[in-house]
């Protein structure tokens, strides 16, 4: 096997020392510091970012809490105002309704009284006209005037008996 040829050992060892020495130098001075630098930087950066994220999260939590407090306050104030307005509106409405009721009742009473009065007046007029007519008829039949009070009484009695018959 060529591997066991003693003539080729020496140059291989010489060049192995040269190339491996060069490679070691390149790795130790160039490649490895660069790689470990980048890895280190990444670890630090990630830690920094995590810290910053923590701070920002805390800040946003505070802001949210403040906002929620303000919102709750505003909501309470709004509810209070709505309740006040509702109460005021209800009181107003009740007052005006009561006033209207009273006015209507009074008007109804006035109207009822006037109707009753007119009815009575009308009835009296009818009675009078009937009595007058009755007296005329009696005068024509008997040829003699009868006292108005008599005819009036007769008419009233007749009307009363008619009313009874109706009832």
């Amino acid at each position: 096997m060529p591997q066991f040829d003693p003539n080729v050992i020496e140059p291989q060892l010489v060049w192995l020392v040269i190339s491996f020495g060069l490679f070691y130098f390149l790795m130790a001075r160039l490649a490895l510091p660069r790689i470990s630098g980048v890895l280190q930087e990444r670890v630090e950066r990630v830690a920094d970012d995590l810290d910053q994220a923590e701070v920002l999260k805390r800040e946003s939590d505070e802001v949210r809490e403040a906002r929620e407090a303000t919102l709750a306050e505003a909501r309470a104030a709004a509810a209070r105002k709505v309740a006040e307005a509702t109460a005021r509106a209800r009181a107003d409405a009740e007052a005006s309704l009561a006033a209207l009721d009273a006015k209507l009742a009074q008007e109804t009473a006035t109207a009822t009284a006037r109707i009753a009065e007119e009815q009575a007046a009308a009835r009296r007029e009818i009675d009078r006209v009937a009595a007058e007519g009755c007296r005329e008829i009696v005068k024509k039949l008997v040829g003699e005037a009868v006292a108005a009070s008599v005819t009036h009484k007769a008419v009233e009695d007749a009307v009363a008996s008619l009313r009874r018959g109706e009832a």
Binding site: E10, V14, W15, I18, S19
Partner: peptide, 8 residues
Amino acid sequence: DASITNAS
């Protein structure tokens, strides 16, 4: 012997 060979 530091000959440049295919190995080196």
